[in-house]
Design a protein around this nucleic acid. Structure first.
Lengths: 353, 353
DNA sequence: CATAGTTTGGAGAGCGCTCTCAACGGAACC
DNA sequence: GGTTCCGTTGAGAGCGCTCTCCAAACTATG
């Protein structure tokens, strides 16, 4: 290896200053004359020097990394690959991190390994941790032990959080189905251990109570196959079903497949509303009416709050979830909808670059 | 904060041993009596002590992290959220990292920031770096500067790599379309800066040369909208088109949409073959015949090679890419196919846990 | 010209850990 | 009994950097 390890000492020596001055320049600290500053900067550029992250972290107590902590339901990491949600989270975090010199560390663990994860993150974190799908109890532990933490989605009250209006959105999804004349509406919800799933379930319950609809619901595990199985079962048990609300697009995709396989039509026989507006929503046939979850923006907002140290206990930032009407709810669904309040995720993200 | 920072000194003192002995126990180093070992272990457990990662990295030169380096085409980070490919890579890496105490760091940069990224990774990496979509020149730089590096996909010859048989798979996709009687076959390929796209394009060219087909091809940028636009243009310029090969499923989904919007049918008028077997393949209508790319396994293999230090220069591991025949190529497509050689990604991943 | 105030730069003490090296004690051998 | 040797333990020197002093060099003031 022709590449010799450079230290700040090399830089200081070559620039003819002390280690301390070189350090000041590197950290943009005040108290260095413009002359020396440019001299050191030039040497740094010439040598291609980069400070050692570990040494810097050790000496300063600061950290150049931000943790993303994902608790996988039932320890099932494969959902990470199957659900577009997570890569959207990562894209959002990365967009907020761009140009900050902060690195992203991804931690995925099952609930059983979570305790160890708290220790690990607590020990190392400084920039902070974005918590995804972390239970209230666990989030509280993270909050107590780690310095900075922001949860993506509802969690324990004292833990700062960026929250999508899951409940209201689910309520609106059901209302939408109701508005186009559907009365036998079933919900395919997500796993219990997921707080977002819980919020959507709550909105569903509220809506059916207000609208006087029956409570027909099954768990689809946030997976396509789960959605397929759930819809198959629903169709068998409730032959008169005319609407399905799925708590994520992948389950909705599975449900549409099941409905089609059962020889029924979407939206004519059964209208379907999904949740997330993920990449699959537009791909399925018919294109899926769904609730647009601004995942990228939420993740970016959480990240920024962390970087700026803005996340005090009880800090909250709410994100609207709007309906994106496509064909799976028929031609009349767009009527009487409140206007969308958030820009499209992809467009907004592109706009930032 | 009620939580006091623990050091190895606290552990050593409480266990009545020296710092050195405590360190030996923590690192499973030999030369410690069983008696002391259990005593230290107990204190560690009692105190909930976890070594400081930064200090450990600094002192040992080792790193508890593994880097994932993704070079985004044209610096476009948003593709990260739009393409299921990347989250599958992450899922694969994480599955190989599970239980190793190694953390994953995700670095995404445009080609222009790549130089800086090399410095950064070189300065900090030890467990290694998995390179995704890194050009041969840049990969060679990484390889020269960093200690351990494995590329996901073809790259410079000296750089260790895990390679999907992109070229052969594309060849087979075209053959499949040819076998079911299609003769006016177009390709929607990926961006030039992507080595996988290049491999698939090469296979396409080889196939049409052998089969005596015309070279009809456009770039779809690995995005759904790109696939839609490409297919729309192809349909206009080549009204007699009867087959489309898309270099990724998202583009294939867009193409199917375009074909349908143009009033033509899949597969009757135009058969479509995608690439990746990502989550959308099964969701589109008709379900997409595609080439199954074992992304998770490849990423896991690359990670394991890194962890085990097995990746010598010129090291190569090839992964077969098999056809998954669904409906977008009609009823006869399954005939005459070579048997699949790789397990289904999701099933295989689930099997590991 | 002396004194106090203000920059600017350097010396040096750690940050928490690893790892080499030397010391120690007991077993084995001559 | 003395020597050698091995297994075990501790002392201490860093790893590369930050950051707090403190000294030196200026500038402003009386």
């Amino acid at each position: 290896m022709p590449y010799r390890k450079l230290t700040i000492e090399d830089v200081a020596h070559k620039a003819g200053v002390s280690r301390a001055t070189a350090s000041r320049v590197l950290n943009n600290a005040p108290g260095v004359s413009a002359d020396l500053r440019t001299r050191v900067d030039r040497v740094v550029a010439d040598l291609g020097y980069r400070p050692n992250a570990a040494a810097r972290a050790l000496a300063s107590g600061r950290r150049d990394a931000l943790d993303l902590v994902v608790i996988a339901c039932h320890g099932d990491i494969s959902l990470f690959g199957a659900q577009p949600y997570y890569s959207r989270v990562i894209a959002g975090v990365l967009s907020a991190l761009a140009g900050t010199d902060t690195q992203l560390r991804v931690n995925v663990a099952g609930a059983d390994e979570a305790a160890e994860l708290v220790d690990r993150v607590a020990q190392s974190v400084t920039a902070g941790a974005v918590l995804v799908n972390v239970s209230p109890a666990l989030a509280a532990r993270f909050h107590a032990r780690c310095r900075r933490v922001v949860s993506l989605g509802a969690t324990a009250p004292q833990v700062p959080a960026v929250e999508p209006e899951n409940s209201r959105a689910a309520y609106e999804a059901i209302s939408l189905l109701h508005r186009i004349g559907r009365r036998r509406i079933a919900a395919i919800h997500g796993p219990d251990c997921n707080t977002c799933a819980a919020g959507r379930r709550a909105g569903h319950l509220e809506a059916i109570r207000e609208l006087g609809l029956p409570d027909i619901a099954v768990d689809g595990g946030f997976r396509r196959e789960g959605g397929y199985a759930a819809a198959t079962r629903l169709l068998a048990e409730h032959p008169d079903l005319d609407g399905i609300f799925a708590a994520c697009d992948m389950m909705a995709a599975g449900a549409i497949q099941a409905i089609t396989d059962a020889g029924r039509r979407v939206p004519d026989d059964i209208a379907v509303v999904g949740f997330d507006d993920s990449a699959v929503a537009a791909c399925v046939s018919p294109p899926l009416t769904t609730m647009r979850l601004p995942v990228e923006q939420m993740a970016a907002a959480a990240t920024r709050a962390l970087l700026e140290g803005a996340a005090a206990p009880h800090w909250r930032r709410f994100f609207p979830v709007d309906a994106v009407v496509r064909s799976s709810t028929g031609p009349d669904a767009a009527l009487g909808l409140p206007p969308a309040r958030s820009p499209h995720p992809v467009a907004a993200l592109a706009g930032r670059t």
